[in-house]
Design a protein around this nucleic acid. Sequence first.
DNA 1: TATGAATGAGTTTTCATTCAT
DNA 2: CATGAATGAAAACTCATTCAT
Lengths: 198, 198, 198, 198
Amino acid sequence: MGRPSNTEQRKQEIVEALLRVMSECGYEKASIQIIAKEAGLAPGLIHYHFKTKQEILLALVNWIAFSATERLEKMSEEVSDPWEKLGAFINARLAKGETELPQVVSAWVVIAGESIRQPEIKEVYQGLIEKQLEMLKTLIAEVWQGKSIESKEVVHLSAIIIAAMEGAFQLSATANEIMPKNYAAQSVLALIKNHIGA
Amino acid sequence: MGRPSNTEQRKQEIVEALLRVMSECGYEKASIQIIAKEAGLAPGLIHYHFKTKQEILLALVNWIAFSATERLEKMSEEVSDPWEKLGAFINARLAKGETELPQVVSAWVVIAGESIRQPEIKEVYQGLIEKQLEMLKTLIAEVWQGKSIESKEVVHLSAIIIAAMEGAFQLSATANEIMPKNYAAQSVLALIKNHIGA
Amino acid sequence: MGRPSNTEQRKQEIVEALLRVMSECGYEKASIQIIAKEAGLAPGLIHYHFKTKQEILLALVNWIAFSATERLEKMSEEVSDPWEKLGAFINARLAKGETELPQVVSAWVVIAGESIRQPEIKEVYQGLIEKQLEMLKTLIAEVWQGKSIESKEVVHLSAIIIAAMEGAFQLSATANEIMPKNYAAQSVLALIKNHIGA
Amino acid sequence: MGRPSNTEQRKQEIVEALLRVMSECGYEKASIQIIAKEAGLAPGLIHYHFKTKQEILLALVNWIAFSATERLEKMSEEVSDPWEKLGAFINARLAKGETELPQVVSAWVVIAGESIRQPEIKEVYQGLIEKQLEMLKTLIAEVWQGKSIESKEVVHLSAIIIAAMEGAFQLSATANEIMPKNYAAQSVLALIKNHIGA
DNA sequence: TATGAATGAGTTTTCATTCAT
DNA sequence: CATGAATGAAAACTCATTCAT
């Protein structure tokens, strides 16, 4: 009957090894050999579980996107007040003491760079951004009196807020002194509050 | 006597070739061979003018940083009204129809990714961010009644605005439908105006 | 489970291939390609087993040094008479019909040249010389009535004998007609005998 | 009429630049660019005066050989007593306080290594050794009562003394603590004296 | 599933040599 | 004679991928 499959667990180990290596070396310099060593596995095994290196990256991007989405959804379910929901959304990605590892932040910046030349990565990247944008539009429409979810004001505000959040990620990875993640969240929230006159 | 030097011109040609290639292939895939072909030069000549490939990247980052700074300074000199200055600052980096090529935007995202693993790149990257932050703080203090340049509010607002601008760059390179550069600028400006109650 | 390791054998094959190539082409001209061809292996495999080319050279130098030391020690154990021991020592490195291949002699001269610019090589080279010097001092003190091992006379005589042996190597590799290895050994021994008046 | 030729001087400058560079980097790593910089000349000029890099090496080897021979001859002319002549010969190459630069010693070891693969170099190298051997045989025959210049004893002793001198060079370049040049000379002379019973 | 050796194309870099000025 | 840019072949090294065990 053979041993029970542990493929899923192994795959996850490999993906997380890539995350750790990539957050220090970037994607190209994260060689299969190094990923294997980081994961404590033999190099050959990597290609048993993933056909190509890009497939691992794709799995990583999907995993990060999935985790983020999942966390966002859970957080917005836990609270019911619209403003609290909005706060939860912002905090979920930007607040200090997050489950979000600093490695994920660095990796995310690297992923953005890779998405420039790898359409498959770009697609997943865009998917996450779009999902976030949808959520944010909904949340902002809820707190902004008299504005419909597809009104120009809501759309623009949401987009620029998403940009600010992505930018905060980038700066916290590349210029940490300037943008510590801890005050990014409150600044963003304050910005929104003032903007819609709450 | 002897051959006249054309080093500076050649170096610039090489740097711009890297820019073009990098905005499509990323940094690692921008091989010396490809850069040389793009520049119409022999591969060996690249290393005659630059000792290493990283040196070309460094020159590119410095050039982008220098061009941006120069443009920002010139624009802020051309107008005298504080609000107009602020607008010029925002527009200089984000407005459509700019001298800023879309290639520069893509390259900038790639550079952010590279700065994760190359300290020399990180340093120049941070340098530009810091310079921009200083300018923005000054501009915001000028339009924000009663706020000193180093007050917490000004610092935080400036930082988040810088983040939004960097994020807008990133999104316009990776998710263009969501964040066309053309409305990023006006959104940011509107955000500031509302925030400080102007 | 898994593939059995043959690393040690492969490494030795590569080291010996370097020896052969180096004794004809020198170190710099012994390219990885040529070494690989000489060893009947794929070029990439060389770097799988040795991180750098210098590492191969280092392994070779260590191997030569180890072989020489081992042979010297064995030879001095096989005889007990002090004069015979001394003769065995001289013969071990210089006598004809030796296990010492002419390739080792040529390679050794090349190694001396490389040790000028590679400190790591120099270190191993010096180590062997020092070990030989210690052995020779002991042997000479044993046959030289009334001289202590660290007396000036013993030290100087030993040093010059080591020099003569190294020089004989060099001449037999570069000017073979002048210094055939076969009479170097007996000449050195005669020199010592006369010198200490035996 | 043009300017007066300075070819000979330039050539000598280049040769000496190679000497200096080679004594630190070896021959292969002594690139034309580096030699040119060391000589304070433009790279192109090197190839104006020497067709190939090997030609410079050849000139250097010849120069060293010529200088050595010249010095030896002059020294043996200055004294008339046979033992003094012999002493002068030994001292000329090995004694401390020599005009012989330490760089020449290092370069000489590198040259020996190169002669393994470059017949042209080997030839000059052997030529110098032979010339020295002839001189030494003459000198030894003069001090050794009743021995003819081509007797087996004189030939062998001369050969091993030449070997000791070359070896002393090598050790003083690669293992200086073991064989300082200063006591090599006196040791060699003492060895000869004892050997021929003087 | 797992191991780790093996492959070969591709990368950056070096450098003797040539050549336009 | 002299300069210094330009060339292109070759070098060491990397690495995703394959394969024998």
